[in-house]
């Protein structure tokens, strides 16, 4: 009975997720030339990944983005979730504000990314403000087509992926615990540090896993908003794919996959995801 109900899900994931990854894994050992790929068992593609000096640059760029975005989204997501859960008094307001936060999530990421262009460009709104306030004599060039723009777009698109699981965790904290801590004389800061933060860490972990993997897996935001100047690991793979160099792209994919799985595994050691969702 249970298996029949779960079978469609299992089937789709098997055909369109597991099998393709197996293909990627297998092809990572293949030989290739400009025309086609040839079955083989070569470790050359991996050797290239590990010996190339570019690899380290790509990974350090990817981690740089991931760490900065993770730090910002945790801070912003936590404050937003905390405000909604513990400062908004009525349920109607809480739901209303939460919906307001969630709406942009349901609109196109591509468009949300593009929407930063008229904002950050040389003649964009931010520069107009900067010039009008005489903060700078010339327009700021670092705003668009830069790491700054990439990180702004990541934060814009991913913060709700962090905030939503944190809201979910916080909403399960018994309000009597907060009253009990206030009874004990704890200040708001102490309550956040000693009660709220430890009890919402599962949400933080789940959000971190989502934000981290989305940042590490991205290639189009970094491409468009850095103006092609920056590239992460996946950007390089996308480039190899467009050149039809499938086996090396597959090898790079497998390596990144292992890195991602290890990172997520570490995060999920802290959290029981299923329990977190069902509670």
């Amino acid at each position: 009975m249970s298996w029949m109900q779960a079978a469609p899900l299992a089937l789709v994931l098997l055909v369109f997720f597991v099998a393709p990854l197996v293909f990627v894994f297998v092809v990572s050992f293949f030989d290739y030339d400009r025309l086609a790929i040839y079955p083989a068992f070569l470790l050359d593609n991996y050797a290239d990944v590990f010996t190339s000096s570019i690899t380290l640059q790509l990974y350090s760029k990817t981690f740089e983005y991931a760490v900065i975005v993770e730090a910002i989204t945790v801070a912003v997501g936590f404050l937003v979730a905390y405000f909604l859960t513990f400062h908004v008094r009525t349920t109607a307001w809480r739901i209303g504000l939460l919906v307001a936060c969630t709406i942009p999530f349901f609109t196109s990421n591509m468009i949300r990314m593009i929407s930063w262009m008229p904002f950050l460009g040389r003649e964009g709104i931010l520069n107009d403000v900067v010039l009008a306030m005489r903060l700078s004599k010339t327009p700021l060039d670092f705003l668009l087509f830069s790491d700054f723009a990439v990180i702004v777009a990541y934060v814009h698109i991913l913060t709700m992926m962090m905030a939503a699981p944190i809201v979910n965790s916080m909403s399960k904290i018994d309000k009597a615990l907060i009253s009990a801590a206030r009874d004990a004389g704890a200040s708001e800061f102490q309550i956040v540090r000693d009660i709220v933060l430890p009890l919402s860490r599962t949400g933080v972990a789940l959000g971190s896993a989502l934000v981290l993997t989305q940042t590490m897996g991205d290639y189009f935001i970094v491409h468009v908003l850095s103006g092609g100047k920056s590239a992460g690991v996946v950007s390089a793979i996308a480039t190899q794919l467009s050149a039809f160099e499938y086996p090396p792209a597959a090898a790079s994919s497998v390596v990144l996959l292992v890195v991602v799985v290890v990172l997520v595994g570490v995060i999920f050691r802290v959290v029981d995801v299923r329990k977190e969702l069902a509670g």
Partner: peptide, 17 residues
């Protein structure tokens, strides 16, 4: 895993398969 997998890999794998 399918959720956290870099999306490009999934597309790549399917196309390759």
């Amino acid at each position: 895993a399918s959720l956290v997998m870099p999306s490009l890999f999934v597309g790549f794998g399917i196309a390759l398969g």
